[in-house]
């Protein structure tokens, strides 16, 4: 089960993360879980000597989440990924792919959201007929 879980709010996030860094923790990754139509939960995982420390951040989907990529540079990839998959927005992302990390223009957006409907921007092109029937 998840141990060492600390709940944080968007305001206290940066301070807590900076403190964690100071304590010698290593950034492991971030996980986002959609809770309901309006809120998602971002879990930050840190590790020191094989012990995990997790921060839970409940965030409203339509509000910006402060980015921690200026504290842990490695977080930029995870944050970009969450932006892609959950249509969240991280503020202050050092390298912001702007929701194009994984997806092309015509692909689905926010596919991992169950509660909000994900849309397809442009229709699928007609598939080419198979010519292998010689």
């Amino acid at each position: 089960m998840l141990e060492n879980v600390v709940s944080v709010s968007p305001d206290t996030l940066a301070g807590e993360i900076a403190k964690t860094k100071y304590e010698g923790f290593r950034f492991v990754t971030m996980t986002c879980v959609e809770l309901d139509a309006d809120t998602a939960e971002v879990i930050y995982h840190f590790d020191r000597d094989f012990t995990l420390k997790n921060f839970r951040l409940k965030a409203a989907k339509n509000a910006d989440i402060p980015s921690i990529s200026h504290i842990f540079m490695a977080a930029f990839l995870a944050e970009n990924e969450i932006q892609d998959m959950f249509h969240l927005k991280f503020k202050g992302l050092i390298i912001d792919f702007n929701r194009t990390l994984y997806f092309d223009d015509n692909a689905q957006t926010a596919p991992l959201c169950r509660y909000t409907v994900s849309q397809i921007k442009s229709p699928e092109p007609e598939s080419i007929q198979n010519s292998g029937d010689v």
Partner: peptide
């Protein structure tokens, strides 16, 4: 084969 014609599978 959804994108280009395939000759061998």
């Amino acid at each position: 084969d959804r994108v280009i014609p395939v000759d061998v599978y």
